[in-house]
Amino acid sequence: MQELQELAKKLLSEGRVQVVIGYEAGAHGVRPAFVTDAADCGRLIFDPRCVHNLAVYLSPRRSPVKRLGKPAVVVKGCDAKAVAGLLRESQIKRDDVVLIGVRCSGVLADPRSGATLTGETVADKCILCDLHEPTLVDHLVGELRPPLPDMPRVSRRDLMLERISAMSPAERWAFWQAEFSRCTRCYACRQTCPLCFCEQCVADKSQPQWLETSPHPRGNLAWHVIRAMHLAGRCVDCGECERACPAEIPLGLLYRKVAQIVEARFKHRPTEDPEVPSPIGKYSLDDEQEFIL
């Protein structure tokens, strides 16, 4: 913690950045913090409640954040992958941001609970995590704690997906219809996603209109399927959309399924390397095309 605070102080006081984007304690657990004064760096913390993916504030469309000046941002492994996504898709330049990597042994599924981190309370994405120490970063702080002794071997979502694939198509349809019927089209999933950075979302396009905008099951399905397709091979599984969803739709389940398909078909998994394009933005003469008759 002290290491992080001192680094932030140094970066701010030396004028290398104008704002440090990190985490601070708030009324309901932990919240994002924007520290612009070196004297305030004592506010910064990092613990298993820091689930938020702060890479979302790097998007060029976040003008209030942009106005604060050059940022340093605290990133976990999954967040660093999102930064790589922004670099890969030309949304930011590497020199325009200082990345403070934190060694992360996992975060809580419910950060408001304030529970201790155990195999029971750990977020599902952390069971699948392959990046506890981000390497894309400029600075790396914190200590890696030993792995949880009771860390589940299989992700809870993967178990659920197995159950879903065992369902008949009609049951599966009913399952998703029930989930999507709760969607109010608030677009919190989109707003909290670091990789949903389009200036004009396809959902907002009216000439022609791609999908119904009212919270109707048909338009809801179209919206979630389009978003899943746009995130195919890009989603870094930070879990923010599902956490932000007020209707508690298991979006992580949907994106996990798409990630499994992308990995099986394109041998692709989102990484920290900004040079590796995602399959959606790639063309190769060797692409499989067995579906062309």
Partner: peptide, 15 residues
Amino acid sequence: PATCTGCFHCERVCH
């Protein structure tokens, strides 16, 4: 030009 976000997927897929 008003809505292009500059992600350049198009550049990578253009043969």
